[in-house]
């Protein structure tokens, strides 16, 4: 887990591969290099569209492309994709069920020094509430490559959440990626730790530390947030009888809420949430921020101890 690479790099590289399909168009709003679509632009200039700083327009230009059979990927920061263009995503893309791929880059706290306006911590909740769209949050570089290909191959509206900072690599080229099917990374029956994105690597560190204490944790990489893998949640609730969810997102409406909803309907078990506690972010180094907002392995370990005490 020592090697690090940003998920956005995996995205940008894979776009070049799938760009061989002449239906693929890529759009951006004055962020060509930071969201890594310059790679596509260099290879396929005819199918690259610079929209300027106009996310609402970008979303619906993409919708128009989809209308005549193209496969558009419109790429900006998650903050602007999910919030600035929300009405367009809702009415034009989702209601019409157009084959539009929305890429929210630089998501979560780890965009770092740019501060709260850019640290989107609400997009999972927003996108999860919309009908007809599916959402993936890759945990590392390799998974970002597979997720990019998956949303290209799957028809309909998709939201892909990417990060800016280099993230620990926890999977490899051969790790299976099945859309909508979570990956169980460690075996354990004392507690299930369900995480997404960069928090998967923190969860693995926590699980390793907990094993020193004789606690076995089942770490689950919930890469597909919508549709969520209900089976893996139900199975974990049954086997472990306690769950901790971990996400670089607000506590309201994100992964934790999704997991709690499934448990409440099926097997209610104690759940603890490691998330942002209804606050805006701050400027700082990504690592400092994870520490400050309580998204470190140590916070996950504390949450596990707490949930184990609440176990029936």
């Amino acid at each position: 887990m020592s090697e690090k690479k940003p998920t956005r790099v995996g995205y940008g590289e894979t776009l070049v591969e799938i760009g061989q399909d002449e239906r693929v168009y890529v759009l951006t709003g004055d962020l060509k290099e930071s969201v890594m679509v310059h790679l596509f632009a260099e290879n396929y200039p005819k199918r690259f569209i610079q929209v300027g700083i106009a996310e609402q327009n970008m979303c619906n230009v993409a919708a128009g492309l989809a209308l005549i059979g193209k496969i558009p990927f419109w790429t900006t920061y998650g903050a602007f994709a999910s919030c600035r263009a929300l009405d367009m995503i809702r009415v034009t893309v989702c209601y019409s069920e157009l084959n539009v791929k929305i890429i929210g880059g630089h998501s979560g706290l780890t965009v770092g020094p740019d501060g709260a306006s850019h640290q989107i911590l609400e997009d999972i909740a927003i996108i999860r509430s919309l009908p007809n769209i599916e959402m993936v949050i890759p945990c590392d570089y390799w998974e970002a490559k597979k997720a990019t290909r998956a949303i290209y191959e799957r028809k309909g509206p998709k939201y892909l959440r990417l990060g800016r900072a280099p993230q620990p690599i926890v999977t490899d080229i051969n790790t299976p990626f099945v859309f909508g099917k979570a990956n169980i990374l460690t075996n354990g029956n004392d507690v299930a730790i369900i995480a997404c994105g960069q928090m998967v690597s923190e969860s693995l560190i926590a699980a390793n530390n907990l094993s020193q204490l004789g606690i076995t944790a089942r770490v689950i990489n919930m890469h597909t947030l919508k549709p969520i893998d209900r089976d893996v949640i139900i199975e974990s609730a049954k086997d472990c009888k306690a769950i901790v969810t971990v996400e670089e997102h607000q506590i309201n409406g994100g992964l934790g809420s999704a997991v709690a909803q499934v448990c409440a309907e099926t097997i209610p078990v104690p759940i603890e949430y490691v998330a942002i506690m209804d606050k805006f972010g701050k400027s700082g180094d990504p690592d400092e921020l994870l520490e400050y907002f309580g998204l470190r392995a140590s916070n996950i370990e504390k949450a596990v101890q707490k949930v184990l005490q609440r176990k029936f």
């Binding site: 609402q56 619906n60 230009v61 005549i68 367009m88 034009t92 019409s96």
Partner: peptide, 17 residues
């Protein structure tokens, strides 16, 4: 062609086409 009702959105779709 496309569901609508929230104003201001159509011209952008036309631009994409």
């Amino acid at each position: 062609e496309v569901s609508s009702g929230s104003l201001g959105q159509g011209l952008s779709i036309g631009c994409g086409v």
